[in-house]
Design a protein around this nucleic acid. Sequence first.
DNA 1: AAATTTTACGCAATCGGTTGCATTAAATAC
DNA 2: GTATTTAATGCAACCGATTGCGTAAAATTT
Lengths: 343, 343
Amino acid sequence: MSISREVTIYDIAKELNISAATVSRSLKNHPAISDKTKQKILATAKEMGYRSNTFARNLRRQKTNTLGVIVPRLNSTFMSEVIAGMEKVANEAGYNLIISQSLEMMKKEAINAATMFNNRVDGLLVSLAYDTDSIAHFEPFIQKNIPLLFFDRICDQQQYAGIVINNYQAAYEITAHLIEQGCQNLFHITGNLSRNVYADRFNGFRQALADHQINHSPEYLLINNLSAQEGKATAHLLLQKKTLPDGVFVANDTCAVACMLELMEKGIRIPEDIAFTGFNNDPISWVVKPQLTTVHYKGFDMGETAAQTLINRLNHGQEASNQTIVLPHELISRQSSLKHATS
Amino acid sequence: MSISREVTIYDIAKELNISAATVSRSLKNHPAISDKTKQKILATAKEMGYRSNTFARNLRRQKTNTLGVIVPRLNSTFMSEVIAGMEKVANEAGYNLIISQSLEMMKKEAINAATMFNNRVDGLLVSLAYDTDSIAHFEPFIQKNIPLLFFDRICDQQQYAGIVINNYQAAYEITAHLIEQGCQNLFHITGNLSRNVYADRFNGFRQALADHQINHSPEYLLINNLSAQEGKATAHLLLQKKTLPDGVFVANDTCAVACMLELMEKGIRIPEDIAFTGFNNDPISWVVKPQLTTVHYKGFDMGETAAQTLINRLNHGQEASNQTIVLPHELISRQSSLKHATS
DNA sequence: AAATTTTACGCAATCGGTTGCATTAAATAC
DNA sequence: GTATTTAATGCAACCGATTGCGTAAAATTT
């Protein structure tokens, strides 16, 4: 079975004895073409099995209609929904998505960015890797004025726009919640503080303590990579403290759950001895017993918003407003933090 | 800040007073060009900030160097690793990935396939959606001889190749394990039996029963969409049975956990009253208490294998062998199924 | 009916690499 | 020293859609 050659606008033109220009214009619904001609061309195109050649189009238009997306990992419900939201908006606007994972490594993030750049994506959506401490690898995009938009894990430099939730506020709320439950000795387990999400959450945590005149032990801040493995390790660290905390706010659910389970293994009662809270509302947060108090926010909405913002900028040439868009979040309180059983 | 025009091979050619053809050949390391010239050109290209124009290249070569990937969802650790494996192999071979989610809907799968087709992907990797009952939407690929490869959720028609694990064998093993634990009244909760993964698991389950001369109740097969929600609903269905099962094999972890938790809520003891097993070794399987016995298989390897197989076919024009590649799996037994405490 | 405007379409250059074939220069053979 | 082979490079025609500009035909105005 030989592969038949692709049908081009020239084939259609020849078939109908008209010019390729007219065919081209008809196919994109150009107003200068009469309806009758358009109909005829559309019908013939369909009949001949024509499909537009994206390369020729891109070559000529200097546009790819492709958006690049770089995320740390694709393995969370949250990220899956972010991508789904982006896909929806992008497809509706005629854009395609090229997605890649940095696997939390700045090095791979840089490689991915370079690939995206060489593939001439029209715009780039990025959630930064865990250890990214410089955004020099995005410089080519900025140089060439290719829209660049961060989401969730954004770049804290003022000049870059981003889509986020109010991590400060969410952390403040969850911490206040712990305090309301009677916690007096609170600890915070979090990730790299140069990531906005973790810095903001830490600040919210601290401010809540300050506002409620709660003193804290000098060792109240524990930093790890927020993996399950390190959550478990951190549990042992906690057990070696002179006095155990009576409340812990962990910056993600994975680490919170691992840490909590390990402590329970060692006989610590949750929430009686230590109240626990996480962040993200991952499925594991409700599977674990006791169910984990956490912060929920909508990945789908974030994806939609991010893609839409980027596309608006592309279409209307909207200036790269360094405006940061803040989406809502929601505190979900569950058993792991409820020292006073309310039910 | 105006956008400076892109550097082309013509610019380089002019700069060095040579032809564009020589530049083109040098950049792709053609043997007919002298090393001296190559060096000079490479250096100048770098200096001038040249980047190859993919469209022009694709337009001429009739290749995109892009692979399409359609998956049901991106929200599992498994799928994230599959993608990571594909990315690794693809990037090494100079290919890019376009990823999209069918969200378990055949309709969206078809739309995605059409988009991929129009974007002229060189090959397509697919894991079928939950309700896909016809693969007519992949017909254009077959017609045009564009390599198509299924993985995990493959197409059972003989002529299509696929990368899988031995779902039959895994299910057999996990069922035999339940029987060894003393289960006599086994139930199976699974998804659409026209999906190979579920059909094979069901067959393995049945065969294990037969081989061990275990009778089964006529209602031992329960089908739902394997979501957490339906897992919970199915728990209630079970509770209405005259006699409860003493062992349940669920075809994925999400549904298994949801069902199990709901039953525990109603006072059923796991594993004493009912032993539970899942499939996939998702993080929730070890977070839940009791930890869930399940089947583990390596997503990364599956992704690598799938991408490599496809690329080999593209490069060496290997005939579309309808050979199915089977990767290893591993039974992970945990508390949820251990009626005889071994520790 | 002539002049002017509007409508509908065609011409041809362009986007930037790629590659078959021709050509020149250098190397080797006779 | 001439003939032949080999190595290195250039020429120019593609790939297929887009679009500024020009023009013929139709519609409208005067």
